[in-house]
């Protein structure tokens, strides 16, 4: 019979082992979030498709047709937008749902022990499932425009993993801040709204580089979504699209930094969650 010793600082020492031991709870909570989402909305899966489709439609008209911004290579403008819309949608829903996840599961947290990181991580994963569902739209768009991808598509899973890491770091940070400062949630929609235009979703990032030069673009890449979106376009659109690797590297460093920072801050505050939630 295994013995468990509870004393001050125990959870700290066994952190990663506990996280592994509770993996099944993690799966089931993620599954709960997904199945509840698809049960509650009348339109179910349709919602995951209609929302991005409408956004692409608007963005293609505004940036492609009205502003006449150039696409990259020979890719149709809607596919250019959608290749960026996919990771952006994932990123923004992850942040939004992760930030609400702990407060929404307050009764669980104050009554049952498990590593708290399971909850926001589960929220990110359930957004990731939505993200996978939206790939169906991408395929449909490609068929519609008869756009054939290149070998680079094989590397897309790498960039998807990159997007996942890019979402988890800020997600954890925002979640912890949201428990501690309840009014932080008012800031989140603004951040997301702002981020949509600060990231190259509706236009090609090469526009920024051509107009302002490489050094400005390196600063622009401090927004981790720049790297993620460029990676997605590079893999999906193929052709003569080039990635500006120093900029991508900057995004990588920022993602790693956010991840480290998010993990650190979350672990620092999570012990007190049950007491303050």
């Amino acid at each position: 019979m295994d013995e468990l010793i509870l004393e001050h600082g125990r959870a700290e020492r066994h952190y990663w082992r506990d996280l592994w031991r509770y993996r099944e709870l993690f799966y089931i909570l993620a599954w709960r979030d997904i199945s509840v989402r698809y049960k509650q909305t009348v339109m179910g899966v349709a919602w995951a498709i209609i929302q991005p489709l409408l956004t692409i439609f608007v963005m293609t008209i505004v940036f492609g047709t009205v502003a006449k911004l150039p696409s990259e290579g020979n890719a149709p403008y809607s596919i250019l937008v959608f290749a960026a819309m996919l990771p952006w949608q994932f990123f923004s829903t992850s942040l939004a749902s992760a930030s609400q996840s702990l407060v929404g599961n307050a009764n669980l947290i104050s009554k049952v022990y498990f590593p708290r990181m399971i909850i926001p991580a589960g929220a990110v994963i359930s957004s990731f499932i939505d993200f996978l569902v939206s790939f169906v739209i991408l395929i449909a768009l490609m068929v519609w425009f008869r756009f054939w991808p290149t070998w680079r598509l094989v590397l897309l899973p790498l960039f998807m993993a990159f997007a996942l890491f890019a979402a988890i770091g800020p997600g954890l940070l925002i979640t912890a801040l949201n428990v501690k400062y309840r009014d932080f949630r008012y800031v989140i929609p603004f951040l997301i709204q702002f981020g949509l235009y600060a990231s190259p979703v509706g236009f090609s990032s090469s526009l920024i580089r051509e107009r302002f030069g490489d050094s400005v673009f390196a600063i622009y890449s401090l927004n981790p979504m720049v790297g993620v979106i460029d990676g997605f376009r590079w893999a999906i659109l193929g052709g003569e699209i080039s990635i500006y690797w120093p900029g991508f590297l900057v995004s990588c460093v920022i993602v790693a930094l956010f991840l480290a920072c998010g993990l650190w801050y979350f672990r620092k505050t999570e012990k007190s969650f049950a007491d303050i939630i």
Partner: peptide, 30 residues
């Protein structure tokens, strides 16, 4: 294990389960 003690220690031998408030974590839609 919901909170940690400030001082002292507890030794528990075997699997621990709590029968706290009934239905904690139930989801009405499921």
């Amino acid at each position: 294990q919901i909170t940690e003690p400030t001082k002292g220690r507890v030794r528990l031998r075997g699997r621990v389960a709590s029968l706290l408030e009934v239905g904690t974590g139930f989801h009405p839609e499921l």
